[in-house]
Amino acid sequence: MSKLLNSVNQRTQLAGENRLELLLFRLENRQLYGINVFKVKKIMPCPHLTQMPYHHPITLGVANTMDGPLPILDLLNAIGTRPSQRVKGNNVIVTEYNRRLQGFLVDKVEHIINIEWSAIHPPPKGVGKDHYLTAISRHNNEIVEIIDVEKIIAEISPANEELTSELGESLTTSTMEVPRHVLVVDDSVVARNQIKKCLESVNFTTTLLKNGAEAHQHLQQMVAEGRRPQDEYLMMISDIEMPEMDGYTLTRKVKEDANLKSFYVLLHTSLSGVFNKNMVQKVGANDFLAKFDANELANAVLRRLEIKQEDTAIH
């Protein structure tokens, strides 16, 4: 299986083409699941685990690895099915989300598939609000479930969503007449709510959309109505991984549109890797920020606000 991941860096050209590669795996419930290859660091047999006092029930233990202590999470238990019956002999997918390494216990790792984001869809509305799915697709007549890992991690180890008082005052006391409305595009409910809370705490309003296709349609509709999104929104904050149209493709379409190319785009993602900065330049995004730090996000919005104020004052 390690051979499957050796060429991850050679696959970065998929980004920006509205395609991705999913690593497929199964849990003990035999359902087929998928995870973006770019989030996978390595795959290994479940190592010896050390139990930690007062640990979260989803955390099976901590493994001593070359990268340091690695928490191993019971993915089957995390999505509300049941605790895994077998630990020894199972596999661990080591991932990097939101600047943290964690391992997910899985039953069987299968193979990697190349797929278009347009073939990945939001979960059906009938599954309710408490599910752990961020998207679904199909492969060989099987449903592939893509889990909202950010929701799982947020429940185990919530991100710091508090702003420093100085930063909050700086953003709140701005008086220049510029739009304090931000377009937020993210398929994760947790991520949307984190950004919304961060921005509203400093008196910004938000419009929340679920994927790149929805955002692109929204912007096109504004243009068709004779409105300029760059005049009504301070900026767009967009995730990269989203069903139907990813953030790279959304950004490229915005920057290639004569009516939208001046619209400020911040890509905000849990994806890690040096290729991200190159992709930001390739698709024309204005900035890139790894999830999730409330102060860093607010600082990015503040920088944009200051630039917008300066431009407004000049003109």
Rank of each mutant, 00 (worst) to 15 (best):
L5N: 02
N9V: 05
Q10K: 09
T12G: 12
A15H: 03
L20T: 10
L23R: 02
R26S: 12
L27R: 07
E28G: 04
E28M: 08
L32V: 15
Y33Q: 07
G34M: 07
I35H: 00
I35N: 01
K41P: 07
I43V: 11
P53Q: 07
Y54T: 05
G61Q: 11
V62P: 06
A63T: 04
A63E: 06
M66P: 01
M66L: 12
M66Q: 09
G68M: 11
G68I: 13
I72T: 10
L75K: 11
S84D: 06
R86Q: 14
R86V: 10
R86H: 11
I93K: 09
V94Y: 07
T95L: 14
T95C: 15
Q102N: 13
Q102E: 14
F104T: 04
L105C: 13
V106K: 10
D107S: 10
V109H: 07
I112S: 03
P122C: 05
V127P: 11
G128I: 04
G128P: 07
H131C: 13
R138W: 13
I143R: 02
V144L: 09
I147S: 09
E150R: 11
L163N: 02
T164R: 06
T164N: 12
S165I: 07
E166V: 07
E166P: 00
L167E: 06
L171Y: 00
L171D: 02
T175E: 05
M176A: 15
E177R: 11
E177F: 14
V178D: 14
V182E: 03
S188Q: 06
Q194D: 01
K196C: 03
K196N: 03
F204W: 03
T205L: 10
T206S: 11
L208M: 15
K210L: 06
G212W: 03
L219C: 04
L219T: 02
Q220D: 04
V223S: 04
G226H: 09
G226S: 00
R228S: 14
L234V: 14
I240P: 05
M242R: 06
M245Q: 12
M245S: 06
T249H: 06
R252E: 05
K255P: 00
N259F: 00
L260I: 00
K261E: 02
Y264W: 05
V265H: 00
H268D: 06
L271E: 09
F275R: 03
V280P: 12
V283W: 09
N286R: 10
K291R: 12
K291P: 10
F292W: 05
E296F: 01
A298W: 02
L302Q: 06
L302G: 01
L302K: 11
R304Y: 08
I307L: 14
K308A: 15
K308W: 08
D311P: 00
D311T: 13
I314L: 15
